[in-house]
Simulated assay, not measured.
Amino acid sequence: MTTQIDAGELSRLIGTKTVKVIDGSWALDGTDMRALFETDHIPGAQFFDIEAVSDHSTDLPHMAPSPEQFAAAVGRLGISADDHVVIYDRQGLFSAARVWWTFVVMGHKKVQILRGGLLGWKAAGLPIEDHVVPASAVTYTPYPLRGKIIDMKTLAESSNDYLVLDARSRARFEGTAPEPRAGLRSGHMPGSRSLPFGDLIRDGSLKPEAELKEILADVGVHDEVAVVTSCGSGVTAAIISMALAETGHTSALLYDGSWAEWGQNKLDTPVVTGAE
């Protein structure tokens, strides 16, 4: 199954009731995406709250939930492990990738991103709803996959074993722009390479596979390399993970703590500035 689906195909599946749709919108500036969802969404969609469905035992933002927490939350949305799930966000392609990645980590087989997101859906002239239809809860059984997440300790001890791709802007990567979160140093992990997530996107969708392969090859991706994706807090890193999956590279790990963890002033993790 490819990582993306067109609006027309999703509309057809909604008509045959063979798909479950999720709004996975999230914004760094704290915009109330749930409130926006409740007034403007794809028919039948349910809202996935990235902040709520996360590990609350840490002060790091929206870390991956436990399988039990994920199962309970997704089950309340009326989704079972066998359902075909399609995720979108309001920006085109931004936080939806993080929700897609979370489903993948939990072993969900049929999960895709809507090309163009809500903006693309509207541009196609397809209907929206301004009311939420409550879902009937079901039992969700996760089958979590190993080897999809890497922690700071493991990465710090074996960084030379990985190609680390950083989805933040080049200015943040090089340390010429400040971090949006307080208490973080500017710069990047030694040896990591800059791959701003926007370089992978056109019109709210991943670029064509051939272009993605060329972009990824230019930063050192090949079949034999172990890739780690990173960003500010693990959201846009998933866009690189998605691009890797779209081009057939399925062994990438995501550094969930990302710069929100590595870049903390209180840590002695090495940080460098300038182009790498």
Rank of each mutant, 00 (worst) to 15 (best):
R12S: 04
L13T: 01
T16P: 02
K17I: 04
T18R: 15
T18N: 15
T18A: 15
V19Y: 03
K20Q: 14
I22P: 14
S25Q: 00
S25L: 00
W26F: 14
L28M: 14
D29S: 02
G30D: 13
T31H: 06
T31W: 01
D32F: 09
M33E: 05
A35M: 04
E38V: 02
E38A: 09
I42L: 02
P43H: 01
A45I: 11
Q46W: 03
F47I: 04
F48H: 00
I50M: 15
A52F: 02
A52L: 15
V53N: 13
V53K: 08
S57L: 05
S57D: 12
T58A: 07
T58E: 03
L60I: 02
M63G: 14
M63K: 10
P65Y: 06
P67S: 05
P67M: 04
Q69H: 14
Q69V: 07
F70L: 00
A71T: 12
A72F: 06
R76M: 08
R76E: 13
L77K: 02
I79N: 01
I79F: 04
I79G: 00
S80L: 01
A81R: 08
A81G: 00
A81E: 15
D83T: 10
H84M: 03
H84C: 06
H84A: 10
V86Y: 12
Y88M: 05
D89E: 07
Q91M: 12
Q91E: 13
G92C: 07
S95H: 13
A96I: 09
A96K: 05
A97M: 03
A97Q: 11
A97S: 14
W100F: 13
W101D: 09
G107K: 01
H108C: 13
K110P: 08
Q112C: 06
